[in-house]
Amino acid sequence: MLSVSNLHAYYGKSHILQGVNFTIEEGEIVSLLGRNGVGRSTTVKTIMGEVEPTGSILFKGQEIAGKKSFEIANLGLGYVPENRNIFPTLTVRQNLQLGLKPGTNTGKWTIEEMFDLFPNLGERAEVAGGVLSGGEQQMLCMCRTLMGDPELIMIDEPTEGLAPKIVEQVAQLLQKIADRGVAILLVEQKLSIALKISLRLYVMGHGQIVYEGTPDSLMRADEVRAEWLEV
């Protein structure tokens, strides 16, 4: 479904992505792991067209490198940024409406379904997004992207700064999303959630993929965890 090959990206003169290669198949949960600053976030931003790419990014067989963000989104690629950009002055319901693609009024996911999944959001449907807690904002942000019916959703550090109980809820939501046939690329620093829900995982280091495997194989590969993941 998504095939990234020999992807390079630059911030000014610094060479951030130095030939990234990975693939995601339909309906898979794949994690992209690595320490801070190795280029995980840049990878998803580059795929989304926020950073200029060189190399090839095939999505559903179509070259998307060089396309604009909104065009990529409209092809069915969803992105939940790390900074949880909810719109603080708009209500929860309005934030969700924003996720609908231009010209559509309903998608595979309805606002009511989102509220069923997260009663917390339902109770606060008419409340301004800015007053939600960090966890609720994260949920809202993921639900907003889901409203646009993505076939693959890339989520950058959804559990950062969240309490363990909320992290558990996020993991459940990701599982529910995947159960409905949406592929997920989970960008994470924490191993726990990634090991629990991913089918496959990639480890990044110095702007490249340095390890590919399954949660089981990563658990056995002590030297990989020591060199690239553990702090």
Partner: peptide, 18 residues
């Protein structure tokens, strides 16, 4: 709503397909 959001968060709104 899209206009209001685009004024303050153009990137995010673009990522949602607008």
């Amino acid at each position: 709503i899209i206009i209001q959001a685009a004024l303050t968060h153009p990137h995010t709104v673009s990522n949602l397909g607008h």
